[in-house]
């Protein structure tokens, strides 16, 4: 399992002098599910891109189990992007097969069954609905047996029932694999539902304004009284927290 230490100083937007991330520092314990919440444009996607190695800042330290993330020993990483990002010219099976080093028909079949897409393996992405495409993207991320999995608002713009099915599915998959998870969202109840810990970010240039452990027993439900009470307490304490501010007025 993977422990993650992130320290980023001044990450600029590509080809610009606008600062996206400023003094970001946090750690994720092995097998921990961390949710990151912040207003739009607060550089959450940039943060995930940096953890995945797609982007870099001039001053950054990304450690995985105490060793540098890039250049260190490669470990399986799953990344569910905001858009499904499937190859349109490959079938569902081929899309998942693509990220696997060897042919693994049974693994793909089991995974598709787990995400509720049994028998859809020979369809092309365009033949599936948006929610189904996201499920394929999730299956693809779990196919590599990820030690670390990054999710970027994966349930954005889905209807509520589909989103909650997928949330349950995600919680199940993470629990059975024991993967370390960094989950970006702007939906507080979603974060409370899934995460062990929530990190709140400010407006751009973003820094971490608050961290809190969700000390509720799992499995949780979306509108359970404990969960709602927990959320109400937080919102009561920091009414502006979702717009990236700890101000109390």
């Amino acid at each position: 399992m993977i422990a993650l230490d992130v320290a980023i100083k001044d990450k600029y937007y590509a080809n610009s002098d606008l600062v996206v991330l400023k003094e970001i520092q946090f750690s994720v314990k092995p097998g921990e599910f961390v949710a990151i919440i912040g207003p739009s444009g607060s550089g959450k996607t940039t943060l995930l891109n940096m953890i995945s190695g797609l982007e870099e800042a001039t001053e950054q330290t990304l450690l995985c189990n105490g060793k540098p993330l890039n250049g260190g020993k490669a470990f399986p990483l799953g990344y569910v992007f905001q858009q499904p990002r499937l190859m349109p010219w490959l079938t569902v099976n081929e899309n998942i097969q693509l990220v696997l080093p060897t042919t693994q028909e049974t693994i793909i079949k089991t995974l598709l069954a787990q995400v509720g897409l049994a028998g859809k393996g020979d369809y092309y992405p365009k033949q599936l609905s948006g929610g189904m495409q996201r499920r394929v993207a999730i299956a693809r991320a779990f196919a590599v047996n990820p030690e670390l999995i990054l999710l970027d608002e994966p349930f954005n713009s889905l209807d509520a029932p589909t989103a909650s099915t997928l949330r349950l599915l995600l919680a199940d998959l993470c629990k059975s694999r024991g993967s370390t998870v960094v989950f970006v969202t702007h939906d507080l109840s979603e974060a409370i539902n899934l995460a062990d810990r929530i990190i709140f970010m400010s407006h751009s240039p973003s820094s971490i304004i608050h961290q809190t452990t969700v000390d509720l027993p799992k499995p949780r439900t979306e509108s359970g009284s404990n969960e709602l009470a927990w959320q109400a307490k937080l919102m009561n304490q920091y009414p502006q927290i979702l717009s990236g501010s700890l101000c109390t007025d």
């Binding site: 190695g53 990483l77 990344y79």
Partner: peptide, 16 residues
């Protein structure tokens, strides 16, 4: 670029 990033994240070989 988005699709190429998928290839990068999942460490696909250059050939793939």
């Amino acid at each position: 670029e988005d699709l190429l990033n998928v290839a990068k994240v999942y460490k696909l070989s250059l050939r793939k």
